[in-house]
Amino acid sequence: MKAATAIINRSALIHNYNTLKKLSPNSQLMAVVKANGYGHGALEIAKTLHFADYCGVARVDEALALRESGITSPILLLEGFVSEYCLPLLIEHQLETVIHCQEQLDMLLAFKSEQLIKVWLKLDTGMHRLGIRMEEAENAFMQLSCSAIVEKPINLMTHFACSDELDNPLTQNQINQFDTFSQTKAIGLSSLAASGGILFWPESRRDLNRAGIILYGVSPLTNKPAIDFDLKPVMQLESSLIAVRRHLKGESVGYNATWTGDRDTTIGVVAIGYGDGYSRSLKNGTPVLVNGREVPLIGRVSMDMITVDLGPNATDKVGDTVILWGKALPIERIALQNGLSPYELMTQLTSRLKLEYIDE
């Protein structure tokens, strides 16, 4: 009987990387492995994609874990650094960093070193989360250009706010702002496109594209699964039936009795819950695959288990495999039905969940 397990298909991962690379063959492609590789295991993803042009992480600790495990690919800190004490680590471990605020810029310019640091100045073209505001970008660019510690030329990047909204004019406006700023300057590499940009905004594919959720075979559009873009789901989340029970009409199941049967039926208890990262907010009726057929989630998701309605004529038995999402049941569908994001569903998977790697 299998406990809750995420089956990670390395062949699908490599297929996705190569497929995305073909969309812009003259560009470099970053494998974004932050948040434990979107729940897939950052180290194993980085090892599998050892040929990737770049790895992208959010924080210094994530980068150090990769370096300490032998990953030699260029690594970019997408949030930059939070303390001047991080700066020696950037040099020691050959890490590249985003600069997105004046505080980071001041720390960098005050740092003394004979070795150069490769930086990416992040422009706030419309996301308004991180990045140097456009009216302040000229001064920031000048300060970096005059610094003796910064590798030249300066690299530029930005991040889209609405790239998954194909009729939203903001993305094109962000591209225009980026180009207006950069066209009069001698810059190094430029990076605009993350997952949505790579798929839907070809004019944003520049020197370095950043593949996040699409690398793992999940679409940023929940109503259009990744298989429509020739991308393969890398993860299959599965577990086993640990009990099969007769259930009578009028009986409820689970905490707070959120579901009551309207017929005699058979329920299955599955060994997975929010302790494994299967979201407690998933609703009654969320599809689950048991022996190749869809059955509905019923009752509240518990810490260690869920219940499903197997139907009155069920022949399922204890030990049978249950699939929560994967190739046959896209995670985009689970997210759409519950008003959630696939990002959230994958990255909240916990350390109790077993990760099993296959090549097929």
Rank of each mutant, 00 (worst) to 15 (best):
S73H: 13
K34Q: 05
V57P: 05
E44K: 15
A46R: 06
T48S: 14
L87N: 02
L77N: 08
T97S: 15
F81W: 01
S73I: 12
S24N: 12
H93Q: 07
Q102H: 14
P88Q: 04
G39N: 03
L49K: 14
I75K: 11
A42E: 04
L29H: 10
F51H: 14
E62G: 15
E44V: 02
Y85F: 14
C86G: 01
D53E: 07
E44Y: 09
L105P: 03
A35W: 03
V57Y: 07
A58I: 09
E68P: 08
T48I: 11
L76A: 10
E62K: 14
E79I: 07
N26Q: 14
C86W: 09
E92R: 09
H40Q: 07
I91Q: 06
K22I: 09
V32A: 08
Q94W: 03
V32D: 07
G80N: 13
L87P: 01
S69G: 07
A58V: 12
C101V: 12
T72C: 02
F81H: 04
A58K: 04
V60S: 02
V32H: 12
I75A: 04
T19R: 14
A42Y: 10
Y38D: 08
S69T: 10
S83C: 00
L29M: 10
I99E: 00
E84N: 00
D61G: 03
E96A: 11
S83Q: 01
C55Q: 12
A58F: 15
E103P: 02
Q94R: 15
H40E: 08
P25A: 04
I71V: 09
